[in-house]
Design a protein around this nucleic acid. Structure first.
Length: 427
RNA sequence: GGUGAGGUGGGUGAGUGGCUGAAACCACCGGUUUGCUAAACCGGCAUACUUCGAAAGGGGUAUCGCGGGUUCGAAUCCCGCCCUCACCGCCA
């Protein structure tokens, strides 16, 4: 959620930002609506406060009069206060109505894009921020997509998942399972080396937590919900990990706070279908190592760069060809100010697969989370939050299988050998 | 699953209708004292909204788990909800 104060003081910047997000002039009306509701709220509040102050003052007087035994005078004042109560009720309703309406509108306003976010209406307009410097590798003859390789090499089994649970729940087995575990450990070790504190968070969260990172109410349909206990299965480690700092006033010298966590991620993916969801491209449960940072507003974009380098380093070590995109105004996430996507080239499918998304949310998320710090003037300010996948397992596995297939098996990148205990997956 | 206890500021914890935005202690910050450390003493120390002010700062309102009610007045009384802890049972 944007800070109301920010909108009030930077209306033009906000409007400009929304234009980058392709808001129509009509759509931009929302900002004026918010501001006028805010004014209504404030004027109601001022009047309400004045009336409450009067009522409090009279009530105190009544207490005094009773002590002095001046019953008649007390009764007189009582009647006066009773009269005030009606006005107070009215003003209260007025204030709450304006406030609620305003908040509802505010929830519909996305984050203001960073100035570097390119214009554009869809993913075709994303800017290639860093291209793969070499010629893209080609595979001989009949390169296979990962779902075919999976059954050939017994790496994972989606049909078995259907038997146990349903579509979209892969069962990894044998060397596939080992590869999965190897990647998780490799990613966590790399994050630790980069100074991230490892977290093992709960996989189920309550509604406060889901709300604070913005999954509720917007993405309610995307989460699995345990009705009996009113808990949500996490769609990403971002949710429980970032919430560690909900309602916390951080010591300024602790910035940046760097956290990492491996968790399975559960997503209902309601509404998606078609060829592009084959294999591991889109599943209901997948493993992911997430990196999260809570940063000082002055340095959050430097931290974002640092995160980019970290993710790029992982892909370098895995020897996968990749490029980095800077998402355009039409493709950037609702809550993000700046997002970079990492895409790995699949030589088999001959297309780019998204494997990571790294974003700076500036204060948009922390406004709901209430992650704050005291600045030099001892004023509390919102911190900036950032996160990124480092990395999402399912698609990395897919990319590794596809790019590393050879006549006599699938080769494992060197860096994983200590983790897998084997160098090749053979039939 | 059963039974019981309880949710008050950063922490412990007092407080059963007005003098309580909230005692006291601890922690923390500033100062005095001090060879150093410690101790002692003095002072400060919640958050949000709002209003006045150029600012420093001042005023108002709300907040004692959350929501509602009674009352001129609620941390305190009533109703609903949420949560936590302890013990028993079950169990990795």
């Amino acid at each position: 959620m944007l800070e109301l104060n920010y909108i009030r003081n930077n209306k033009e910047t906000v409007l400009q930002g929304l234009r980058i997000r392709n808001f129509s002039e009509e759509g931009l009306q929302i900002i004026d609506n918010i501001l006028s509701l805010d004014e209504a709220r404030r004027s109601a509040q001022t009047q309400l406060d004045n009336n409450l102050a009067e009522s409090n003052r009279l009530s105190k007087e009544i207490g005094g009069l009773y002590k002095q035994g001046k019953r008649d005078e007390a009764e007189e004042l009582k009647a006066k206060v009773s009269g005030l109560k009606e006005v107070i009720k009215e003003l209260e309703t007025k204030k709450n109505q304006a406030a609620t309406e305003m908040e509802t509108l505010l929830l519909d306003v996305p984050n203001i894009p960073h100035e570097s976010v390119p214009p554009g209406t869809n993913s075709d307009h994303n800017e290639v921020y860093q291209a793969w410097p070499q010629t893209l590798p080609e595979l001989e003859g009949d390169a296979k997509p990962h779902w075919e390789l999976a059954s050939e090499y017994n790496i994972f089994d989606l049909e078995l998942g259907v038997k146990i649970t349903g579509a979209g729940f892969p069962v990894f087995r044998g060397k596939g399972a080992r590869l999965e575990r190897a990647l998780i450990n490799f990613f966590l070790d790399e994050a630790a080396k980069a100074g991230y504190e490892e977290i093992v968070p709960p996989l189920l969260v309550n509604k406060h937590t889901a709300k604070a990172t913005g999954q509720l109410p917007d993405k309610e349909g995307q989460m699995y919900y345990v009705e009996k206990d009113k808990l949500y299965l996490i769609p990403t480690a971002e949710v429980p990990v970032t919430n560690i700092y909900r309602d916390v006033i951080v010591d300024e010298k602790d910035f940046p706070i760097k956290l990492t966590g491996y968790t399975p991620c559960f997503r209902r993916e309601a509404g998606s279908y078609g060829a592009h969801v084959r294999g591991l491209n889109r599943v209901h449960q997948f493993d992911k190592v997430e990196i999260v940072q809570i940063a000082h507003p002055d340095t959050s974009y430097q931290q974002l760069d640092e995160m980019l380098e970290h993710v790029a380093g992982l892909l370098d070590k895995l020897e996968l060809p990749y490029r980095i995109l800077r998402l355009c105004g039409g493709d950037i996430g609702f809550t993000s100010a700046l997002t970079y996507d990492f895409e790995v080239w699949s030589a088999a499918q001959e297309k780019w697969l998204e494997v990571s998304s790294v974003s700076n949310f500036v204060t948009y998320q922390s406004n709901r989370l209430k992650v704050r710090f005291k600045d030099a003037d001892n004023k509390s300010r919102l911190a900036h939050t950032l996160n990124g996948s480092a990395l999402a397992l399912a698609r990395i596995v897919a990319a590794l299988l596809e790019n590393n297939q050879t006549e006599d098996g699938i080769t494992i990148p060197k860096v994983l050998h200590p983790y897998t205990g084997f160098t090749k997956i053979v039939k």
